[in-house]
Design a binder for these strands. Structure first.
Lengths: 128, 128
DNA sequence: AAATGTGGTATCCATCCGGTTACCGCAGGG
DNA sequence: CCCTGCGGTAACCGGATGGATACCACATTT
């Protein structure tokens, strides 16, 4: 038989993770983008459509409904001539922003120096 | 016509975001979990399987291949009796950890006080 | 009158994606 | 000898999902 499984060697693997819980909040296409664009302040449907050019109305609508149901955004109907809808982050939504910022940070580094890609963290046996 | 679209009122919406770029790195089911469990140090296939109980071998394998292709993890075949495979984060992979940490933080808060859910950040018109 | 914009919904459809199952060679233990 | 565990791969398959398109009522603008 091979090496025994180290159940918690050197450093224990992180305990059961709330990761999945949180990831659920930004599941679905464009969800992170929507939150990102709302992080600057309330925004209306059409504005979001223009902010995220390649999103379809159908998906944007679906995403906003879901995020509303999850308590991430609020939906306010403004009594304007043609009623318009304004969306904003809830407190919970605000909490997501730092996480997304962190992600964006990585994204920026990626674009700046793509030479990092493929560089191993430590010398290792050849990959197959 | 309704309200004019504010193209960049009060606070400009964040510029075109590298968000999508980075999100691509952790796309696919369980990808964040894999990275999370590797963040504690190198780990072998079977260990990861046990770390993430509900993942199937097929998906874990696929995810690891993809992450390797993207330069997020390295794969090392150890010359043990039955050859075993050990996976570890690359430098790029390490960069993702803080982002995932941020996500986990939100997840923790979620579990601790779920009363935050549904609370609006500011008083607003009733949702439809 | 017609066009445009606003905020969506309905329908259709292809695609992807992940779960399930089966199977593989190899080595060591009982 | 046979079973188990390791580290996968191959084939199948169903549901979810997101894109495209069409359409809606209403109000202003031209």
């Amino acid at each position: 038989m091979g090496l025994p499984l180290r159940k918690s060697k050197v450093a224990a693997p992180p305990p059961a993770c709330p990761l999945t819980e949180c990831m659920g909040l930004l599941r679905g296409a464009w969800a992170p983008n929507v939150i990102w664009h709302l992080s600057a302040g309330p925004r209306r449907f059409g504005e979001l459509r223009h902010d995220i050019p390649r999103i379809s109305a159908r998906v944007l609508s679906a995403r906003l409904r879901e995020l509303e149901a999850k308590g991430v955004v609020t939906r306010a109907v403004l009594a304007t001539s043609p009623p318009s809808a304004e969306y904003a982050l809830t407190d919970l939504g605000e909490e997501l922003v730092p996480a997304i910022h962190a992600i964006v940070e990585v994204g920026r580094k990626l674009k700046q120096n793509p030479k990092t890609r493929g560089k191993a963290a430590s010398p290792r046996v050849r990959t197959s």
